[in-house]
Nucleic acid binder design. Structure first.
Length: 930
RNA sequence: AGACCCGUAGCUCAGUUUUGGUUAGAGCGUCGCAUUGACAUUGCGAAGGUCGAUGGUUCGAGUCCAUUCGGGUCUACCA
């Protein structure tokens, strides 16, 4: 037996492989199903702390229910992550001096598939390192053939139902990635920007009106000026025209209540092609341009917005030729100079506002008029709202429902087309008259619609979230109806973060309700977001990211620095990050093992919104693993040293006590897991194992075995010890799968049980209800031993002496006889000579009043009576104070009348306890006094 | 502008809803003591909190209500 501490690296990967090879994670056919679908990570991504956290939780759930006898499916898979992946591959191409358009669509797609091959398995192997008991046999990727078929089917059905439509609208345009984005992919940043005031000359006068703008370049696309209809300052202008600076064309002045007379100058320039509000206003007023480039208002149907940007946001169209080809910011500069020259620029001021940025590219977005595909989200939202309102789906914690409703009630149609190459190409073919038809292939479309002429396929691909919104059922083979779907769908629970409630959770509910006529999951457990120990979001640019695998295996400072600084978007932060990392981890990070990391996650999983990951805590849980490991080593020693034989044994009070504690904890954990309180469950088990099992039970067993005088008794003590340890391993297994599996198999070998297979599949076999009265008795004995320890700590001269103990006869007779029966063990642990029950108290002694009885340690010549009196008097003062407080309470008529009888009774019991304690203390003091 | 979350021991957090009711808990850290048989990744013991503030409801408030201060998040945004 070696003495080195527990080393998880010896066992973890070996065990996972054994589990996986044995096919233990694959579902069976028991109709009592429990299923989870993993939120599919980006196929080319790597594991971060959030993944680690959420997967730890999912694995605990699935292992717990698998052990409880449910038929479990934990669906695994990865997402193609359109924009993110396309960006990475494009950057790699750029580094080689090539561009996407150089090589063309097909070659590019091939590049991405190659990249997936290189980096694609990283995250799935990392999931294995976490011990996640995923069903690898049903792994899916969102671009698998089968999955693609589901995506196309969904699109075609929605199109045919009129719930997907094409429209020329303003979208959030990312000029760097050259694609549209949905509202959710826009990050609004608060900034100090500039605002300019510009004069527009009124037609056929020498008068001007002034408008304010933060984007002067858009004036090239202005189609009107607008004022509030009730604004007296400008009512005479309504219906007149103004001349557009630098452009030599006229635009109408219209009245619209959208304009806030209090804000700015009260006159607004209207650019329907480049601003969302202006677009709506332009539509209301039917703004359009004639062949002479003059703008007019009209009926709503006349509305034709003009656009002056192309897809790289360079100036085109009706803008004066001079500006053509200029980038938006270059054009802004030139326009401001020109306005200044013409004395039309009134002012330039600082201004607090927000600008929209792309969440991936981090570039300022531009509203741009393009053809896009939309999902009619308003229609799909209704059943999805009802599903949550009716309780068919429950959010945990429940207040996330509010967030959900707030968004769903104001939902906008969802732009699902992306001008990318990586993803599901939209299954639309245009005929020669540009009419769109949906189908699985060109052939399919031709046959269905009897088309003869040339067909052109839509170039765009679908938003990644469109395909992932089908995740729970598309992974199970939909649109085919099969047994898997009927057994495992709806899934039981979704575990995810609040950051994707809108992106994913809400859209899954909408789509699943629509296609399956049922919900995708019955409960949504929204976890907190993992932040660093200072409450900062973990991000590459802050340089505070942690890789869960580094916490498992350890990492040197050099490697950690390299990881945190490679491929930085803002290299100027590099020095700061290096310094900060060196301060935090001067020696790098130690290896803690998966079980310790997982346990840390559980202990932090309280219902709040943010979870600050304090690296200090993981150390404590590594020690916990070591503690368990050594508890096993103790048992191992007993088995070997006493030639343990597996046979029928008899009960003992210590094992009964332990079994009873385990049973209670197991019951509580069941509740905690149902309520997703992994923090409470883990804390309770920790306390059970460390404080009850190791600190007390093992110590009792140790002495009991030592003092046992017959082999049968020894054997039976060991047998009960083994059984209780098994129960603990079972209870811990969903939280710490590796160490528990390893120890259970070692224990099975040692104790010569027939090999009973893996804990993974075995369930909770050893935990049983036990003798509760024994539990109470032993709790009392433990109280006595603890009190003795306090006395020793307070009296340094007796800290190591063997002492005699007298217990007053006030202690009930049941406990007295149990103490007598186990005198040897108790004396052994508490280092006592003999234990007596008596009301005869020797003159020189230390006394301690307990719960209705007292313990006395005769100490002739060893104590200073004066010191002892002082100590007792302090204790007396405390008791008297308690009595005063309770008396005051009971003297309060209001309290006695209004408080529930139970509460009043409790107080009365309390005071009588305190009174008797007081009497005992007074007697003790009197005796010491000369 | 609206919605939401957080504030409890030196630090990181439970406890606050359904149900207001003893002396408010844990881990880490700190202090004192312990040393060869499971474990120093250890054991035993101790100290440490007017629960952000104010007011209210109540016999009774960390918990309920109102106001307020500080920190944070999301949604929507006006030129």
């Amino acid at each position: 037996m070696d003495k080195k501490p527990y080393d998880p690296s010896d066992i973890e990967q070996k065990l996972y492989k054994a589990w996986e090879d044995s096919g233990l994670f694959a579902p069976g056919d028991n109709p009592e199903a429990y299923s989870l679908a993993i939120p599919p990570p980006n196929v080319t991504g790597t594991l971060h702390m959030g993944h680690g956290f959420q997967n730890a939780i999912m694995d605990c759930l699935i292992r717990y229910y698998r052990m409880s006898g449910k038929n479990t499916l934990w669906q695994v898979g990865t997402d193609h992550a359109g924009i993110a992946t396309e960006m990475v591959v494009e950057r790699r191409l750029n580094a080689e001096g090539k561009t996407k358009s150089d090589i063309g669509r097909e070659a590019f797609e091939e590049e991405v598939w190659n990249w997936k091959k290189v980096s694609g398995n990283k995250i799935t192997s990392q999931l294995r390192r976490l011990g996640s008991s995923l069903d690898w046999s049903s792994e899916r990727f969102t671009l698998d053939e089968e999955y693609q078929h589901a995506v196309l089917s969904a699109f075609i059905q929605l199109f045919e139902e009129g719930l997907i439509y094409q429209g020329k609208r303003l979208v959030n345009w990312d000029p760097v990635l050259e694609t549209s984005l949905s509202d959710l992919e826009v990050v609004n940043k608060d900034l100090t920007i500039k605002i300019w005031e510009i004069k527009y000359q009124l037609e056929a006068t020498d008068k001007f009106v002034t408008v304010a703008t933060t984007r002067p370049e858009t004036l090239l696309g202005d189609m009107a000026l607008a004022v509030n209809p009730s604004d007296k300052r400008f009512s005479h202008l309504i219906g007149k025209k103004a001349s557009l600076p630098l452009c030599n064309r006229l635009i109408p002045i219209v009245a619209d209540s959208y304009v806030d007379p209090e804000f700015g100058t009260g006159v607004v320039k209207i650019t329907p092609g480049h601003d969302f509000n202006d677009y709506d206003l332009g539509k209301r007023h039917g703004l359009h341009m004639d062949e002479d480039f003059q703008c007019h208002s009209g009926a709503e149907d006349d509305f034709v917005p003009i656009s002056i940007f192309n897809k790289t946001v360079a100036i085109i169209g009706v803008a004066p030729k001079k500006f053509h080809g200029m980038d938006r910011f270059e054009a802004r500069k030139v326009i401001l100079e020109d306005l200044k020259k013409e004395k039309l620029l009134m002012s330039e001021k600082e201004y607090e506002s927000t600008l929209p940025y792309g969440d991936r590219s981090d570039q300022i977005l531009e509203p741009l008029l393009t053809d896009q595909w939309y999902v009619d989200a308003k229609t799909l939202a209704k059943p999805a709202i009802d599903a949550v309102k009716s309780g068919e789906i429950q959010f945990v914690p429940a207040n996330w429902e509010k967030t959900y409703f707030q968004w769903m009630d104001n939902i906008q149609d969802w732009c699902i087309s992306r001008q990318l190459w990586w993803g599901h190409r939209i299954p639309i073919w245009y005929d020669e008259s540009n009419k769109p038809h949906a189908g699985f292939s060109e052939k399919d479309v031709r046959e269905k619609h009897n088309l003869k002429g040339k067909l052109r396929q839509e170039e765009d691909v679908l938003d990644t979230w469109f395909s992932s919104s089908l995740w729970t059922f598309a992974t199970m083979g939909w649109p085919e109806k099969n047994e898997k779907l009927s057994l495992f769908h709806p899934t039981t629970t979704l575990v995810t973060g609040f950051d994707i409630i809108f992106f994913w959770v809400a859209r899954m509910i909408m789509m699943t309700k629509h296609f399956m006529k049922e919900v995708p999951f019955k409960e949504v457990y929204i976890t907190g977001l993992i932040k660093d120990e200072n409450g900062q979001k973990m991000s590459k640019s802050k340089g505070n990211i942690l890789d869960p695998i580094d916490l498992i295996d350890g990492v040197s400072l050099e490697e950690l620095l390299a990881k945190r600084t490679e491929g930085m978007m803002q290299p100027q932060l590099k020095e700061k990050i290096i310094q900060q990392t060196k301060n935090q981890f001067p020696e790098g990070i130690e290896s803690y093992g998966t079980d310790a990391l997982r346990y840390t996650f559980y202990s932090l999983a309280s219902p709040g919104r943010d979870i600050n990951f304090d690296i200090g805590r993981i150390k404590g849980y590594r020690n916990f693993c070591n503690k368990i490991w050594n508890a096993f080593r103790f048992i191992e020693m007993q088995i070997t040293n006493h030639s343990y034989q597996s046979s029928e044994g008899s009960k003992d009070i210590f094992s009964d006590w332990m079994a009873s504690k385990i049973y209670q904890t197991a019951k509580n954990c069941q509740t905690h897991i149902k309520q997703y309180r992994f923090d409470l469950a883990s804390a309770e088990i920790y306390e059970l194992v460390w404080s009850n099992f190791c600190d007390w039970y093992i110590e009792f067993c140790k002495v009991a075995i030592q003092k046992s005088d017959n082999a049968g008794q020894t054997n039976s003590l060991i047998k009960n010890l083994i059984t209780n340890f098994y129960s603990i391993l079972e209870l811990l297994h969903p939280f710490m799968p590796f160490i528990t599996e390893e120890l259970s198999s070692k224990l099975a070998d040692l104790s010569k049980l027939e090999k009973s297979g893996y804990l993974v599949e075995n369930g909770f076999n050893h935990t049983k209800a036990s003798n509760q009265s024994n539990e109470i008795q032993l709790d009392k004995i433990i109280n006595i031993i603890s009190a003795l320890r306090v006395i020793r700590a307070e009296n340094q001269n007796i800290k190591n002496e063997t002492l005699n103990l007298i217990i007053s006869n006030d202690l009930n007779s049941d406990t007295q006889s149990i103490i007598s029966e186990n005198e040897g063990v108790i004396s052994g642990i508490a280092k006592l000579g003999k234990i007596e029950f008596s009301d005869q108290v020797p003159a020189e002694s230390i006394e301690k009043t307990m719960d209705g009885y007292k313990i006395i340690i005769p100490l002739e010549g060893l104590i200073d009576p004066e010191e002892e009196i002082a100590r007792l008097q302090k204790e007396l003062a405390d008791v008297e104070n308690d009595i005063k407080i309770i008396n005051a309470k009971l003297a309060n008529k209001q309290f006695v009348d209004k408080a529930p009888a139970e509460v009043v009774k409790k107080e009365k019991v309390k005071i009588s306890d305190a009174e008797s304690k007081k009497t005992m203390l007074e007697k003790s003091i009197a005796k010491l006094q000369p």
